[in-house]
Computed example of a mutant assay.
Amino acid sequence: MGTPRVGLRRIGPDGLATFALSNLLILATGGLSWLLLWGYTLRWSRGLRCPGRGHCILVLGQQLVAGVPGPGYRLRLLRAVRLARRNPQARILVLGGQTSEQGPTEAAAGAEFLQQYGIARERIQTEDASLHTLENLRNARDLLVGQQDADEPLVLVTSRFHLARAVAIARGVGLQVCPCPAEPGAQVSAARLAREAWMLHWYHVGRGFARLIRHRGMLERIS
């Protein structure tokens, strides 16, 4: 069994407080606040086409299966391969730390997969200290400081069910991104969409609450 991606210690008391507040808001609105975000997440999962070019491709990792990328992660990596082949100047940043008890980090496994499909090692950069989407994208921003033209959006590759939350967080940490779904089709698991809407609700409630009370520490962690 893999280790949890996010433990209680890593969330911290502020995260737990906003988690509770988010769930209370869902209950107080009779689920309406969650339902609105579910519809928003559904539209994101169905309505996007992948950009043809991009000079920097961010690939969000996913927990490994027996030490190697599972089906969903492979789709993300294969999308990055196709994008990189269209633009030989593009580089790829693979994101993800060690979320399994044994084996490599998500980023290292992803980089090895890309090389097996003919992407040169010098085109690949890895970030292997993050355990969840917020850390993925915050660390990516810090790695790319000074490397990226501010007017050039990054191509953000992830699964369709994950796009809405990933883009919200990316923009929240100051990244200009062009979202790219990993899968060619628009069929998405209803259960996964429901969970993503719930996680996105938590993110927006936490961000809004931190701004409302002007809590610098909370804002620094989520932006």
Rank of each mutant, 00 (worst) to 15 (best):
L36D: 08
G174T: 06
Q176V: 12
Q176W: 11
E106L: 02
I119F: 00
R49A: 13
L212K: 12
Q125M: 10
G96C: 08
H215I: 04
C50Q: 07
V81N: 02
P51H: 03
R86H: 12
S159R: 03
L48K: 03
L58Y: 04
A84G: 06
I26E: 06
Q115R: 07
Q147H: 11
R10G: 06
Q115H: 01
T105G: 06
G172E: 06
R214F: 12
A20F: 11
H204N: 13
G52N: 11
D149R: 14
E112G: 04
R192S: 13
C50D: 04
Q63G: 06
A140Q: 00
D14H: 13
E152K: 09
V155E: 06
L77P: 01
F19A: 15
N139Y: 10
A120Y: 07
R82N: 13
I213D: 10
L32T: 13
A182S: 13
L8D: 09
A190K: 11
C180P: 08
T41N: 13
G208E: 08
A107P: 02
L144V: 08
G72Q: 11
G7L: 06
W202Y: 14
A190F: 15
V177R: 01
R216T: 12
S33W: 07
I57R: 00
Q125G: 05
M1V: 12
A108C: 04
Y73T: 00
G206S: 14
L144F: 10
G61V: 00
A108K: 00
Y40N: 08
A28V: 15
L78R: 06
L32P: 08
C180L: 10
W44L: 05
